[in-house]
Simulated scan of single mutants.
Amino acid sequence: MTRTSTQARSLRFGVVAPITTDVPTWADQLRRLAGTGYSTILMPDVPQWQPAPAPALAVAATVTGLRVGTWVYASPVRPAWSTAWEAHSLTVLTGGRFEMGIGTGRPGIAEQLRELGLPTGPASRRLDQVREVVAALREMDGPDVHTPVAMAVGGAKAQAVAAELADTVTFVMPHTETRAETMRRVRDFGNPRAAELALHVSVIGDGVAPFMAAPTTDPAALRAADSVACLPSDPGAAAEEILRRHEEMGFSYFVFGADVAGDLAPVVARLAGR
C-alpha cells in the first residue's frame, strides 16, 4: 500500500453491539449512538450469546438508519447459499446498508461445530467455505447490487483470499502482538486492490470489551507490547493514536465495543470522515 492510498481513505467507526439486555434498552442504546459519527452497527455470530445476527441487524438498521454488518459470520456454521441469501436479503431490506463480515470462525470453533452436530473439517475447508459464500453472494447480488464483504483473516492463505475478494480486511492477530509486528503484517499483506483496512480495538484504557476479547485479557500486557488492539481512555490521546495508525499503517475503519462507544463518541464525531 502506498502512502497516498493510505491517506486517501476516510476514517469511519463501527460498534459491536450485541443484545445483552432487554430489547428496548438495547434499542435505546443504538438510538443514542446514531448521529454521533459512528457509521455501522455490528453483530457477532455466536448462537449462545444473543439472537441471530440477521433479524437483530434488520431491527438495528430500522432503529438507527445507520449501516449494519456482521462481525463476523462463521463460515462453517451454515451452508454457503444460506449465508449468502441472508446477506443479500439484508442488503435489499436495508437499501444497501448491509456489510457482510465473514471469517473461518472464532478460536474454539471446532468445539462449537461438534456441539451443533456439524463436521469440523480442516482449516483449509473453512477457508473454501468463505470463498463459496462470497461466490454465492455475488451471484445473488447480480450485476446491479454489490454487498460489501469484510473478511477477518489470519494466515497467509486467508490473506490471499481476502486480497482477491474482500472490500474490507481485518487481521486476526494475538492481542499482545507488537506495533512493529502489526506493521510488518500490513506491509506483507500488500493490499493489491486497496481494500479498506479495519482494526478491531477490544481494549480501551483498562476496560475489555465484551464479545471482542476474552475477559481474562490483560490491558497492561497489551500496553507493554504497544499493541494496536488497545487505545488510551483519554479522548485526546485516543484521537492522536487513531490518526497515527491511519497514517503509519493505513487502518481507516476502527471497530469498538458498545460499552465504550458512548465515551468515545466525541472522538468519533471529531474524526469521522477525515
Rank of each mutant, 00 (worst) to 15 (best):
V72I: 14
Y73R: 11
P79G: 10
A80C: 08
T83D: 02
T83F: 01
A84C: 06
H88Y: 09
S89W: 08
S89H: 10
T94P: 15
R97F: 07
E99R: 07
G101M: 08
G103I: 01
T104A: 15
T104Q: 13
T104Y: 12
G105R: 04
R106A: 15
G108W: 00
E111I: 01
E111Y: 02
Q112K: 04
Q112R: 03
Q112L: 13
L113P: 09
L118I: 05
T120W: 00
T120A: 14
G121S: 08
R126A: 13
D128V: 04
V130K: 06
V133E: 03
A136C: 12
R138N: 08
R138C: 10
R138E: 09
P143R: 11
D144T: 11
H146Y: 03
A152C: 11
V153D: 06
G154Y: 10
G155E: 01
G155W: 02
A156M: 13
A158N: 07
Q159W: 05
E164D: 15
A166C: 03
D167V: 04
T168F: 03
V169A: 13
F171C: 04
F171D: 10
M173D: 08
H175E: 15
T176Y: 10
T178G: 10
E181D: 14
V186Q: 05
R187N: 02
R187H: 12
R187Y: 06
P192R: 10
P192D: 14
R193M: 02
L197P: 11
A198M: 08
H200S: 11
I204S: 02
